[in-house]
Nucleic acid binder design. Structure first.
Lengths: 155, 155
DNA sequence: TAAAAACAGTTTGAATATAAACTGTTTAGT
DNA sequence: ACTAAACAGTTTATATTCAAACTGTTTTTA
């Protein structure tokens, strides 16, 4: 088995590809679970719900920032969540520009069903890993994000 | 500055979020470059072109697998690349199910313009990193991918 | 070798993505 | 206080995503 030495730049490209690949496997795993149990929700809606479960009553812009989406995607996604009876839109009395998003009882209940699947797929993925090396990688990715943010604000 | 200790499972979720965030910054950076120079191409098309630059003459399924997309997305994306005159579809004489995708002269030329931007964004991201830690993270992500693949094939 | 299974690509339909232009609200600057 | 700027959300237009059903081709297998 030969060892191929990659340059730093080549490793960066590989990292990008592996991130993409990992995310697509996680997505696939969750989507299979959703379909097997006939839950009427998409992966994207789950990402949004996951944030709302952590912080009920945010406005749409905050949810968009946190889930890394455009605010116009959020209008559409929240529309669909409202249609499914999982959240409700409430106009902010203190700032009438904001629409605050609150969980319905149904939305709260869904958490108990869906969160275990998310935990499950990550559990499988990290089974053979050391906590420390996992932490190192989080730190590394966050450094990369930081470098790109800094560069952006310089221009 | 307090140090918060996260569980392994929490780190995994963080890693997922950081991957998503990093990818979205890379995308943004490239899209700004594309727009600044008025190149008629999308980020998704660039991902496809990047693979074709590495391996000219693949069929659509291979490109779909490699760029982590459904083959039906590929039909659409290749259509758009053909419209822009960057690639051409050639029916495989040996297996008439396949359509082989070849670069046009224009498609080849584009590589010289776009590859530097991709290199650039990754260069910025990895500027402060050690090659070894970058490599460790690639290994870690690939282990995670491997665990999910293994689990999948067991079911 | 004929039928069945596997495979590559396309089409269709529903959901999501972004950017840009827009409305309405709040904040800042003069 | 008034005007301008900033902000939140919506709408529109276009591109992309996936799944599922379909066509046509090749390979398996009985």
């Amino acid at each position: 088995m030969e060892t191929i030495t990659l340059t730093k730049a080549e490793l960066a490209l590989q990292l990008g590809h592996s991130m993409h690949e990992l995310r697509s496997y996680v997505r696939q795993y969750i989507q299979v679970k959703i379909k097997e149990h006939s839950v009427n929700i998409t992966f994207e809606m789950l990402e949004v719900m996951s944030f709302i479960w952590k912080k009920d009553g945010s406005n749409q812009q905050e949810i968009a920032d946190e889930t890394l989406r455009d605010k116009s995607s959020m209008t559409y996604l929240i529309d669909n969540l409202v249609k499914r009876g999982l959240v409700k839109r409430v106009e902010d009395e203190n700032d009438r520009r904001n629409k605050l998003i609150f969980l319905t009882e149904q939305g709260k209940a869904l958490k108990e069903q869906l969160n275990p699947w998310v935990a499950e797929v990550y559990d499988i993925a990290i089974a053979d890993l050391e906590t420390a090396s996992l932490q190192d990688s989080v730190v590394l990715l966050n450094k990369m994000i930081g470098s790109l943010k800094t560069n952006k604000s310089q221009n």
